[in-house]
Design a protein around this nucleic acid. Structure first.
Lengths: 177, 177
DNA sequence: CATTAATGCGTAGGCGCCTACAAATATTCT
DNA sequence: AGAATATTTGTAGGCGCCTACGCATTAATG
């Protein structure tokens, strides 16, 4: 799977200021986070395709929230997941077109669309719940084996909430430019 | 910047099996890594736009490698960065169209294109080198403040190289399906 | 050598997320 | 009430990466 993972292919041709794929540079750290997230998303997707289940990774957040927290609007879900309403809107459109979710205008607020599971949606959630549990267990064991990566991500997020990377960089670059 | 970061908006309506934006679930961990990488990429991009420099984040890897390791082919760079040749090809096409890089067919192998900096490319690299240093310093200080996140990512990557997340999940799900 | 395989590269299109913008409905303020 | 403002949702298009595929060139076979 994937392009490399553990290819025995050491660069080491010249004295680069960094190891390219493994360094703490700001460009590199972003790229590493992205690679890792792609890798995880891809493996999760592969689980569904291997089991022959028509399910997309990005449906998980909206679908589980609708399943657990009754009718929700697009922006409700977006706030809970901390992603934009646009992403939710698109995921929900897919869920609706697959007959897993249906919507009705909120009687109390004509702008809102209240989303709820259909019978098929409920059935799919029930069917996938044990699989999701397996995924979560595997992920938590992986996290433990890797030494609490998630906690490290929490700390990183907290740090960035306090002072953004932009501010951190501009502080250092201000004198020279 | 961004959609949320630290919005005072606690879900907590029902007993969800997870905190949605902060959990170790496999779907969630992928999403969190992605959010974080987006956030970092975005801040880095904003640095360039704020300073009025025409530079895109994805150029960094190819450009610095070409700058430091003489003429390289597309796949050389891809191997070093551990991304696909397609990404490199696209980035390099942009670099060429901006006059920062030029290519010549490899005399020893007609399939390969050897990429080198133009004068403008060299000038840009020289101009951006102190900025990149600032970025790297900021990133390393951030990493330190957050308690060695990069080391945690290293460990995560190592664990995944040993046993993929796919295998970890399928192990757990095999009995029930 | 003449095939067959392998390699290097590029194009098309997808993924999950994003910003920018526009339309509809609610709310707030004279 | 009427106008200005805020909120909810959707569409268009971008970002950085990816897979699938086709084409050209080189290397490995019988």
């Amino acid at each position: 799977m994937k392009n490399a993972a553990a290819s025995p292919d050491a660069p080491a041709e010249s004295t680069l200021p960094e190891d390219a794929s493994r360094s703490a540079g700001s460009a590199a750290i972003g790229a590493r986070l992205r690679r890792l997230s792609d890798r995880i998303d891809r493996d999760a997707t592969q689980v569904y395709t291997t089991l022959g289940i028509a399910f997309e990774q990005r449906w998980y957040g909206p679908l589980t929230h609708i399943a657990h927290s009754g009718p929700l609007s697009v922006s409700d879900i977006a706030n809970r997941l901390r992603i934009t309403h646009v992403s939710v809107s698109q995921a929900v459109a897919a869920l609706e077109s697959h007959g897993l979710v249906e919507s009705a205008p909120d009687p109390a607020d004509g702008r809102r669309r209240l989303l709820a599971l259909t019978g098929a949606g409920r059935a799919l959630v029930d069917r996938l719940t044990p699989l999701w549990a397996a995924c979560n267990t595997a992920a938590m064991e992986l996290d433990h084996a890797a030494g609490q990566v998630v906690e490290a991500l929490d700390r990183l997020e907290d740090q960035l909430d306090q002072v953004s990377l932009f501010d951190r960089i501009m502080e250092k670059v201000a004198p020279s430019c």
